[in-house]
Design a protein around this nucleic acid. Structure first.
Lengths: 106, 106
DNA sequence: TTTAGTAGTTTCCTATAGGAAACTACTTTC
DNA sequence: GAAAGTAGTTTCCTATAGGAAACTACTAAA
C-alpha cells in the first residue's frame, strides 16, 4: 500500500493525468498546444506541472532552434509505462459517466 | 479526457485509493480496523472519506447488531471494478520505488 | 511601431484539504 | 463507578493547491 503513496506523490494534483494523457495521444506538443488542448488549465499550472513531470522523467522538454522559439514536450519511454494505467482510468471514468447518465434517466 | 476528470472527482484526495485498496484485499473491516491498517489516517478523514465512497456506491456500510455496536465496511461489486486500476497503480508505484532505489545506489 | 505569436514567471488572492485534539454516546468488563 | 472498547463528530487551525491577471522577453509580420 506504500506503493500507492509513491505513485500518487508523482501523479497528484488536478492536471498531471490530463497532461500525461494528452501527451500520450498527441506525441509531441508545444506549450501553447497543451494550453489549448487541456481545457481550463492556465499558464502557471501548466508550466509548474510540466516542470514536475520533467523532473520525474515522465515528460521531456526540448527547446527548438526556431524563430520564434518553440518548445516540444513529449512523453518519455518511462512515461509511457503509465499508458495502461491512464487508459484504464479513462475507461473507468467513461463507464462511470454512462452509469450516472442512465441513472438520471430513470 | 473528460473521463479522467469524472474518475478523479470520485477518487481525489489523499486517502481514497488507500481505503479502497485496503478494503479490496481485506474484504470486510470495521472502522477501527481501517484506522489501524491505514497508516497515518485520522478519524476525521477516515470517516469523511468513507462517507464519500459510500455515497458513490464504491463502499458499503453495515451496522451490525452487536454490543458494542460494530460497523462493517466492504467494497461493493461496483467498487471492485477499480481493482485492476488500483493493482496497476500499486505495481507502478513499486516499480518506481525500485528504480529510485537503484538510482541512489549508483 | 504596433500587433501578434512564441514561452513562460510573478504576484496576489482564496478556497479547501487535511491534521490534532477534544468531545459525544453507548456498553461491557474490571 | 472507572476504564476501555465500539464509532464517529466537532472545533480550530494551517499549509498549500490552484486561479486570475499582469508582466517579461524575444521575433516576425503588418
Amino acid at each position: 500500500m506504500q506503493a500507492i503513496n509513491d505513485a500518487m506523490s508523482l501523479l497528484s494534483g488536478k492536471w498531471k493525468f490530463h497532461i500525461l494523457g494528452t501527451l500520450i495521444e498527441g506525441n509531441t506538443l508545444g506549450f501553447m498546444d497543451l494550453l489549448r488542448e487541456i481545457d481550463g488549465i492556465g499558464t502557471k499550472m501548466l508550466s509548474k506541472e510540466l516542470q514536475d513531470l520533467e523532473m520525474n522523467n515522465l515528460v521531456s522538454r526540448t527547446v527548438m532552434n526556431t524563430k520564434p522559439i518553440t518548445v516540444e514536450y513529449s512523453i518519455t519511454e518511462y512515461g509511457k509505462t503509465l499508458s495502461s494505467l491512464i487508459d484504464e482510468l479513462a475507461k473507468w471514468g467513461t463507464a462511470y459517466r454512462k452509469s450516472v447518465y442512465s441513472e438520471n434517466k430513470k
